[in-house]
Every structure is written in structure tokens, then in C-alpha cells.
């Protein structure tokens, strides 16, 4: 089980990489995250919502009004060109971070 603190900085990365594939709405994003992470991490609704709003505020995603199959109004989110560029830079940063941390923890039993 990964703590919410440990993964907090990477929620943006997870969301942007999901939105890179296709526009989506909050609940679907939560489900996709759950499908990938399984029991190791479950995202809270407030975490997800504040993350997409933060991304929207930074113009990395845009939102548009859509509707569910049953006609309920639903907000869809779509990645922007800025978002794609930001995702690439964050992915590079994550690879560097991981490689640096890995060098420290090499040989640590866990």
C-alpha cells in the first residue's frame, strides 16, 4: 500500500498520461488509475478532483461539457499541447529521480 504522501507529486503525471490517450471524465480516470494500480494505491476523489482542476488552471488540460450514456451532464477533460510538453518533461524528470533514488537504495533489503 503506497501512502498518499508518497505518490502525491505523481498524480499529475498519471492523469496526463491517461488523458494523452483520449479525453475522459473524473470517474473514468479514477477507474483507470485503479485498474493499473490495483490494491497498491487507491486515489481519493478529492485528490483526483483537485489535480484535474490544478492542471486546468495551468492550461495543461481543458474541460468541456459532455453527457453520460444516460444523458447526465458530465465534465470531460482533454490534454492540451502544453500538457503534452509538460508530460514529456515530467516523464524525463521521473526517470532521473528514479535513477538517483535507485542509486542510493541499492543493496537495501526490503
Amino acid at each position: 500500500m503506497i501512502s498518499a504522501d508518497a505518490i502525491r507529486g505523481y498524480v499529475d503525471l498519471m492523469l496526463l498520461s491517461l488523458l494523452r490517450q483520449r479525453p475522459s471524465y473524473a470517474y473514468e480516470l479514477a477507474q483507470q488509475i485503479h485498474a493499473v494500480t490495483g490494491a497498491e494505491y487507491s486515489i481519493k476523489q478529492t485528490t483526483l478532483y483537485s489535480a484535474v482542476k490544478r492542471l486546468e488552471g495551468a492550461s495543461l488540460v481543458t474541460s468541456y461539457a459532455g453527457a453520460s450514456e444516460s444523458g447526465k451532464p458530465r465534465t470531460y477533460y482533454q490534454i492540451t499541447a502544453d500538457g503534452l510538453a509538460y508530460l514529456e518533461s515530467k516523464v524525463a524528470e521521473w526517470r532521473d529521480t528514479r535513477s538517483v533514488v535507485d542509486r542510493f537504495i541499492e543493496g537495501v533489503e526490503a
Partner: peptide, 13 residues
Amino acid sequence: TEFGNLDELAPVL
């Protein structure tokens, strides 16, 4: 249980 914490929304709202 999965709702989370309203504090998180504070900066956004």
C-alpha cells in the same frame, strides 16, 4: 471512504 479530504481542494477553490 474514497472521498478524501476537503483540505486538498482548498488551494484549487
